[in-house]
Design a binder for these strands. Structure first.
Lengths: 202, 202
DNA sequence: GATGAAAACTAATAAGCGTTAGTTTTGCAA
DNA sequence: TTGCAAAACTAACGCTTATTAGTTTTCATC
């Protein structure tokens, strides 16, 4: 009866994946059913299997699309010649922008990767570990050149990555805070703190 | 056959809730089954219902225990006479400590509250909103007394709460970073940033 | 209009779910 | 030792799940 629409750029499979990201975000991977997904696409559940292999495959597509996007960007930034602190600022801004542009997929990749079956789970964790390692290296480089305070670099990376991830909660306040204020103030907070007049010491 | 053990302080129901937090954390609320929970307690699934009302009740117990713990603490700190910045530091340290002590329950409350049925879902969100409001008020008080930089207070609170929440990921590195370094460096990062010698300006 | 593939449909499967009913076992108090 | 309540058990219910099989419809191309 109804037929899954071809969007201008993207196959029907892409449309299914995009809708799956929306559904997995709002209902969680395990609680979301293929029947719900089908209904939101105006189709019966078995029809989906003309385009995809399994529910799990949808999660894989979402997680690795996001993982590869971040990985390729940090490699570009790392190769540049800017000071380490500028590179870190670029990465924070990149995180914030991607979080706002591809919210559903980033949310699902962040929250539902645990449900990946092996060997995809291990692959995903390796991608993430590698990303964090690149960021730690950047922080350490900044310390070596006295651009960055001498704190544990893993803690700094954990703090930064967790903070940008928290943009998930910003959705609720979209009307109250503009994306630009959010980005600038969060970058300022993560780089220079919130304290006045202590020159980086407590 | 097997019987659920009474721990020294705590009923059998408490023991079930504690084990449920562990299970919901590792498998997610929806993917975790009552049969799994029972097995981890050395019991058949229907036996659980001699002690609890439903699966959902377990999630409620976990979420509200955590919510009330944070709420009562922020009320104590807010009523004090310390400078706003000190109060905020206390709250950050409290978050970190609770995160390390009651990891399973805090994790579940943070991740699985969406599966609460009404009216518990609304109650939980109200508790959380109220908590964030208290924290925003504290930040604004600090700005009024020129203790804190003039950035958007909601963004500052978002950044702080997200960062401490990220301690979930610290588990992996437990061996490499001590709890004290983690706490001190994260507090330092969130209050005074990571930049050297710019006196809080970029 | 006929052909053939792509993609929809209906029907059904086996497995797993939370939970209830009814029964037996356990273990403390008399 | 008996009695009674607490808490375990087995069996089963009704439902939902992802997925498959088999069939029909749709639609672009000849």
């Amino acid at each position: 009866m109804a037929k899954i629409l071809n969007t201008k750029n993207g196959t029907k499979k892409d449309k299914i994946i995009q809708q799956a990201a929306l559904l997995f975000k709002s209902r969680s991977y395990s609680a979301a059913s293929m029947r719900e997904l089908a209904e939101s696409l105006g189709v019966e559940a078995p029809s989906l299997y003309n385009h995809i292999g399994s529910k799990s495959e949808l999660l894989q597509a979402i997680c690795f699309k996001v993982g590869n996007k971040f990985t390729s960007q940090i490699e570009i930034i790392s190769r540049g010649t800017a000071p380490a602190l500028s590179k870190i600022e670029s990465i924070i801004r990149f995180h914030i922008q991607i979080m706002l542009e591809n919210f559903d997929e980033v949310y699902v990749a962040n929250h539902e990767w645990r449900h990946l079956p092996e060997p995809f789970l291990s692959d995903f964790l390796n991608i993430r570990r590698n990303y964090e390692k690149n960021l730690v290296d950047l922080v350490e480089a900044g310390m070596g050149k006295n651009e960055i305070k001498n704190i544990n670099p893993y803690v700094a990376v954990l703090t930064i990555l967790s903070a940008v991830r928290g943009l998930e909660f910003w959705q609720r306040n979209k009307k109250n805070i503009s994306a630009q204020v959010l980005e600038d103030d969060m970058v300022s907070h993560l780089l220079t703190g919130i304290t006045i007049g202590t020159d980086g010491e407590l």
